[in-house]
């Protein structure tokens, strides 16, 4: 069950896992996510589905190794191994429409989950403009894959080492200046989504963001993933994860994401120490 069939390391911190789960691959739709456990004592973590293929019977996850669980996955999830748990697809699928001009913005790792949405819009007959942002050229991934579903792919890097120098909001403005944009989909770090929503607010262009709060079960049972949307409490797992970016309270989201920072740091230190001990023994 849940066997890793392909793995690709994009950088020292980001990697791709293609995992076999034919039923999930068949059920998945753009915008949905899965809950993953690396081992029996592990945390349940939500990860957005970066790609899925009913033919191959697999789903693809792109992961950034930042905490204990993702570092553990980076070390242990090699081809031929299996994840302990993989449940989904969770959340409501993104709303896909044809005949529109849509800008799909992906910041850093957010490029992965926005890709199937861009592809679905393209397949539905919409024109897709891609905007992707990375710190530098070494971190770029999926340029060809993403580019193949876009009319134009605008690459932004913080240091100008590839594409235009600037943030994704600069790329978004460039797209808005040159295309009759009907809709924007932005996925990435909360602060990036916040500024994308601010960029389109004045023009009133419908802007969808995919939020990523802390989650336990992913099925609507715990309420840990609650987000403020238009002054109302919504649960990301069953009411989202896509929400109207002009209504999401991003400051609240950012504050809530820091909820377990001390515990997360302690877990990471503990894990690092254990790893060092193991390395020393070996």
């Amino acid at each position: 069950m849940y066997e890793v069939v392909t793995r690709e390391d994009f950088s020292p911190t980001t990697f791709l896992l293609e995992v076999r789960h034919p039923q999930l691959a068949r059920a998945a739709r753009p915008g949905q996510f899965v809950m993953v456990m690396s081992q029996a004592d592990g945390e349940r973590i939500p990860l957005t589905i970066a790609d899925f293929s009913a033919e191959r019977g697999t789903i693809t996850l792109v992961i950034q190794a930042v905490g204990k669980t993702t570092l553990e996955l980076q070390r242990a999830a090699l081809v031929g191994t299996s994840l302990y748990a993989l449940a989904g697809p969770m959340g409501n699928p993104s709303e896909i429409t044809g005949g529109r001009t849509v800008v799909c913005v992906g910041g850093g790792l957010g490029v992965a989950p926005v890709y199937p949405i861009a592809r679905a819009f393209r397949d539905a007959g919409s024109t897709v403009i891609g905007v992707v942002g990375f710190r530098n050229r070494d971190l770029i991934f999926w340029q060809d894959r993403f580019g193949s579903v876009c009319q134009e792919l605008i690459i932004c890097t913080d240091d100008g080492s590839a594409g235009m120098k600037g943030l994704v909001t600069d790329g978004l403005k460039s797209a808005m200046a040159r295309y009759p944009v009907d809709e924007v989909v932005a996925i990435g770090p909360p602060v990036m989504m916040k500024f994308c929503a601010e960029t389109t607010r004045a023009s009133g262009i419908h802007t969808v963001v995919s939020v990523n709060p802390i989650m336990v079960d992913g099925t609507g049972m715990c309420g840990g993933c609650r987000v403020m949307v238009g002054g109302e409490t919504r649960f990301c797992c069953v009411d989202g994860p896509d929400f109207d970016g002009h209504l999401v309270d991003f400051d609240d989201l950012i504050h809530r994401l820091a909820r377990y920072r001390p515990e997360e740091r302690a877990a990471l230190e503990h894990w690092n120490a254990a790893e060092m001990g193991e390395a020393a023994r070996a």
Binding site: V216, M221, C222, G223, T233
Partner: peptide, 27 residues
């Protein structure tokens, strides 16, 4: 099961360290 926890709808409920009993017990 039912399991979509109710909240009070009072100010401050979005603060970290305010959690549903379901979340607390599940953890």
């Amino acid at each position: 099961g039912a399991g979509y926890p109710a909240f009070l709808g009072i100010p401050g409920e979005g603060l970290n360290d305010v959690l549903s009993a379901n979340e607390f017990l599940t953890r």
